[in-house]
Nucleic acid binder design. Structure first.
Lengths: 204, 204
DNA sequence: GTTGCCATGTAAGTGACTCTTACATAAGTT
DNA sequence: AACTTATGTAAGAGTCACTTACATGGCAAC
């Protein structure tokens, strides 16, 4: 897998188990889905006993939550990068955020499902809640710029939420293969520009 | 649970195990999520040994698939009913389909996640694929009526797909509680009419 | 340096789950 | 009445999450 982290163990103690477990779980979730993953298998990949992970994570959900949090950071960074690629206030900047979102989902469906799937005990996790709001903030900012309105405006929140639902739904339908015979887009971009224009108006 | 199906067993054979298992699984999935469900618990609820279900379903995924298929039928019926409540070609008729979709998700998040979640081995199931297309057909029909275009028109497919993604995304974000601080709709109807108007134009 | 603390590892075990195998029971067919 | 088939049980193999008791070694205080 990863060769920059020494899997050979010089001593009794591992030294980097927590990070290596998260990496192993990410790979496993990608390979077998959030349910298919097992703590025992992750421990095996890290070369430790099946009890060792429980020194770093209270239980299975907490381990998954750590992976979800890390994934959400990557998602926000990607959205931010997409936004920065186009002039502020353009429809393209909004579509680019959507493209980053869809790419993230397609590039790692397992983690995406984990991030947005309410896997076991995510409900009230304030960390994930806050990271989610941070992602939405990017959409909010881009929307406000297009509409020439302050971010706090109700219309901005409304339109931003509409955009979010579209892109979220498209991402899920894509990775869940529910779009097979229904609508074969030549690419995501046409779809993303289409909804951006429909929801924010054809200006930009 | 259900009192119309006799759980008392007069004889060695159950007589109605298959249907009763599906009902038990539906309840369990609703109570503990698609992952929290176990075949053993379903068997226990039906009052049979833990090996009995395997006479009716090859494995766990096949049992879940049966529940998903039944759920998809209910979804299509609900969408159809929503469509019929408003004059053909009105934005209301489209919004009503969306409302049925959201209600279905909120009313049974477990089954909804099961239906649209690619749980284990759904990928190529032609039955679910076909039932999904049947659901999309309802949206397609309503969209064509609003746009005064034939169902086969590319624009109709495009707009119908956009509507689907929005409603699907809204449903998922709602049941996954990702919408907490972001956008508190007074109800779904305003949102549904909003996206219908944005995507299909303000006629209707 | 020695001593003791403590974070982090292991071994072994509990109870639950999926799914298999071998067998028992009933119901219909010939 | 005998055969076949559908549908149940009992027992068990293999896996998993998680616990408990114990082992190891890095590090601070002395």
């Amino acid at each position: 897998m990863s060769d920059d982290t020494p899997s050979r163990r010089s001593s009794y103690h591992h030294g980097d188990l927590r990070a290596q477990l998260i990496a192993a779980v990410r790979d496993l979730v990608e390979a077998h889905g959030p349910d298919g993953f097992s703590v025992a298998e992750a421990a095996r990949q890290a070369g430790v006993s099946s009890a060792a992970p429980y020194k770093h994570f209270r239980d299975r959900p907490e381990l998954l939550r750590a992976v979800a949090a890390e994934g959400m950071d990557r998602l926000r960074d990607a959205m931010e990068a997409g936004l920065a690629q186009h002039p502020a206030g353009s429809l393209q900047s909004v579509a680019a955020i959507g493209q980053a979102y869809v790419d993230f989902a397609r590039g790692g469906p397992g983690v995406f499902r984990l991030v947005f799937g309410l896997t076991e005990g995510h409900e009230g996790d304030p960390l994930l809640q806050e990271k989610g709001s941070s992602c939405f903030g990017v959409v909010l900012r881009a929307t406000a710029a297009v509409l020439h309105l302050p971010m706090e405006d109700a219309a901005v929140r409304e339109r931003a939420y509409m955009l979010w639902t579209c892109v979220h739904g498209h991402s899920f339908l894509t990775i869940d293969r529910k779009t097979e015979g229904k609508f074969d887009m030549s690419g995501d971009w046409a779809y993303l520009m289409g909804i951006s224009a429909a929801i924010l108006g054809p200006r930009g």
